[in-house]
């Protein structure tokens, strides 16, 4: 391990803008400086992750539990990797096979985990507000891995990291979010973050998938996708969330793709160097044309996945700061080590 690497990580632990929150429950309420801080730290973890074989011991001896009440592969794996790369012991719990199935309430589960002295709890839940409910009852750090239709803060942070690395900034960019805004926690978190960071946000959706009060969130709503995409720097596609829908909101996927699916024709309205993003998993041929999704030059969908791990490491770093400050003898421990 080189001395410079070491210095780098010590520097990361002493930020200019201290992060004020105990948990990460949402983007709403964060300050621009706090978001920037997470993104700055995440940049360093991108480097660490790319180095391969490198691992931090920042969270050595700490326990992190991924409590997922909703199926997920990429987010859970991303959190798991983030925890492990920081040296934490990571346990995954899913609703099937756990006592949740046996009728244990959300709060009982939380209190049980709390009694086991877990340090970090990552929670995904199909109900809006469930993570907040749980966070009020536990002593550990709680990270929202997505709650219902409310927020998915780490997704917005990884999206911001992806955009910032490609475009060098967030301020002043035109970002168009397209698709099922009504049911999307990704959209809500991104709208909050992009507004806080000074981007111009537009949303494109059929009226049945657009909240009536959306303009109150400081965005420009469009029902004509080409108009919404005009001169956009970033095109963020959302997944059509059939599982959250009661009844039909659109007549057919064929019609949806025709008017709201991203293809080269509609993409032509955006800036020539516009980036294409999607939080995944994609419904190819429903909200996005396969060719566009795989466009090596413009689609950053794979990069978003990579940034996800780094962004979540940065969140863990920032949120466990108070925890680590109380750890006896921690300053003398080498923060970074190279695995054999």
């Amino acid at each position: 391990m080189s001395a410079s690497t070491r210095a780098e990580f010590v520097a990361a632990a002493a930020p200019a803008v201290p992060f004020r929150h105990r948990h990460l429950l949402g983007i709403e309420g964060l300050a621009a400086g706090e978001i920037s801080e997470i993104l700055d730290i995440a940049e360093r973890y991108v480097e660490l992750n790319r180095r391969g074989g490198a691992k931090s011991s920042l969270l050595r001896g700490r326990t992190m539990v991924n409590l997922f009440f909703e199926s997920s592969t990429r987010t859970r794996t991303s959190f798991e990797l983030a925890g492990k790369r920081l040296g934490a012991d990571v346990i995954n719990m899913t609703s099937d096979g756990s006592s949740v199935r046996k009728g244990e309430t959300l709060l009982d589960t939380a209190i049980t985990l709390n009694a086991m002295h877990v340090d970090v709890l990552v929670v995904r839940h199909p109900e809006s507000g469930a993570v907040k409910l749980l966070a009020d009852k536990v002593n550990c750090v709680v990270m929202n891995g997505g709650d219902g239709q409310h927020e998915h803060p780490t997704q917005a942070l990884l999206d911001a990291l992806t955009i910032r690395r490609r475009k060098g900034r967030l301020q002043g960019l035109i970002v168009t979010i397209c698709g099922d805004v009504l049911h999307s926690r990704v959209a809500r978190s991104n709208i909050h973050l992009l507004n806080i960071m000074g981007a111009r946000v537009r949303v494109v959706a059929p009226p049945t998938l657009m909240p009536g009060a959306i303009a109150r969130m400081g965005v420009e709503p469009f029902t004509d996708m080409k108009k919404g995409l005009a001169d956009a720097d970033i095109v963020m596609m959302l997944r059509l969330q059939n599982e959250r829908m009661q009844g039909r909101y659109v007549p057919s996927t064929r019609e949806y793709f025709r008017f709201f699916g991203l293809d080269y024709d509609k993409l032509g309205a955006a800036k020539p160097d516009a980036l294409i993003m999607h939080p995944g998993p994609m419904n190819r041929g429903v909200e996005i044309d396969s060719e566009v999704a795989d466009d090596f030059g413009r689609s950053v969908i794979q990069e978003q996945v990579e940034m996800g791990v780094a962004a979540r490491m940065a969140c863990l770093d920032v949120l466990t700061r108070a925890l680590r400050a109380n750890q006896v003898g921690s300053p003398t421990q080498p923060p970074l080590e190279v695995a054999n």
Binding site: E28, G148, Q149, R188, G212, A213, R216
Partner: peptide
């Protein structure tokens, strides 16, 4: 009203509640 949890409007949108 089916499936709704609170008044529809800005607050329900922000909270992500039907």
């Amino acid at each position: 009203a089916k499936g709704g949890a609170m008044n529809e409007g800005e607050a329900s949108m922000r909270l992500g509640l039907p």
